[in-house]
Design a protein around this nucleic acid. Structure first.
Lengths: 110, 110
DNA sequence: CGATTGGTTTTCCATTTGGCTAACTTACAT
DNA sequence: ATGTAAGTTAGCCAAATGGAAAACCAATCG
């Protein structure tokens, strides 16, 4: 059943940092430029950019450059992968043996 | 409002590793000893133990030793912290301005 | 044109992470 | 009492992570 973008490692990793979570939260209110996003943080721009790049790689955000400003926005769809995994775990505890659980035990998305 | 165990870093970090997620999945079916848990993995026991310890520190699992065997079990409650954060993010996108969003903007759980 | 703004690349550094082996400590079992 | 089974500790190591500074490039402003 191979899940196309089975990227849970990168996803959880991306969320395991307060700066990155804050960026995600901020982007939840709407798109913003790299500079705007960076402003609240006491961190050099290049350091901050690395977080942005990592978030982008994880799929949690998308970005595009227009002129000299790069705009970032959230990609809600990616959150579903995290939610789905959590949901599957709950299905397991709750002793369900329906299609969902078979999917998990099928060794997809360890 | 200070959330007592505001441990999202550790939580996401703990889940950002396939071995650890697999252990969590396995424990969803019921408690197990360290040895049993380790068995499916091609990894030395001490290496595996570190994963267990990290999961324990994150609060995702609890363990106790009886005789010479240490039994591990999942702590479902801790998952709520992750779910809650995700839920809060969704509340933000969805433009909600109710109590939940104010909680988030209140700068708790960045 | 020249200066400024918004990002970007490169290089560097300390710390953390995830793995290993070797050696040790308790329980149990015989 | 000895041996074995189940963890555990203590080092060790390579790679990844999160940060910084310096220098750079490309738009845009005056």
């Amino acid at each position: 059943m191979e899940n196309q973008s089975d990227n849970l490692d990168g996803l959880f990793q991306a969320l395991a940092d307060p700066t990155r979570r804050a960026v995600v939260s901020r982007l939840g209110r709407g798109p913003a430029s790299v500079g705007d996003l960076a402003q609240p943080f006491d961190m050099a721009l290049p350091s901050f950019l690395k977080h942005i790049r990592l978030l982008e790689k994880s799929g949690l955000i998308r970005t595009h450059k227009e002129g000299r400003v790069r705009t970032c926005e959230i990609d809600q769809r990616t959150f579903h992968e995290v939610e789905d995994w959590l949901e599957q775990q709950k299905q397991i505890w709750e002793g369900r043996t329906d299609r969902l659980e078979r999917f998990v035990t099928g060794k997809d998305r360890v």
